[in-house]
Amino acid sequence: MTTEDIAALEAQIYAFVGRECGSSTAADPVNKAMIRHWCEVMGNTSPDHLDEEAAAAGSRGELVAPATMLFVWNQTGYAVASTGRPKDPQVELIELLDAHGYNGIVATDTTQEYVRELRLGDVISQRTVIDNISERKTTGLGEGYFYETVTEFTDQNGDAVGRQTFKVLKFRPAKKDQA
């Protein structure tokens, strides 16, 4: 790519900063069945996730969801496999970079912060924005751009319950450059 091509691409990609993508309200409220299914696979045996009676007698006084289920409640579901993710600005950003040879993708960092534990019946909404996109970087995988999304999670009253940052590297695979 020439310097002009890179400048033109960067003008396009930086226009994605601040755009909203993938906002939703969960189809199911926080519920025992999904928590139990998650705990079965993870090997989590805490009675505060699995046994309402024991949880009521514990320090919380009620059953709560595991913390890292925060992102589970608003997942798109089987459509991701059957028909593909619905288009949103993040998908468009990825496709734009793909089209310019930056077709490698790898998640590098994610942080979740938990304002409070989620209780049965909580209805979680999430709002995600593309928060920042780095300058062009040279990495071990190849040249590329890091972009970071920020997701805010709220409950049925609009109160914050958690926050997630998620950083992705979109790169031009190094081998391809040499070929």
Partner: peptide, 18 residues
């Protein structure tokens, strides 16, 4: 972490490098 710390502790943050 839950198995180590016991049932009452509350998670406040989890940062992950992949």
């Amino acid at each position: 972490l839950r198995d180590w710390v016991g049932r009452d502790a509350v998670f406040r943050k989890l940062s992950v490098r992949l």
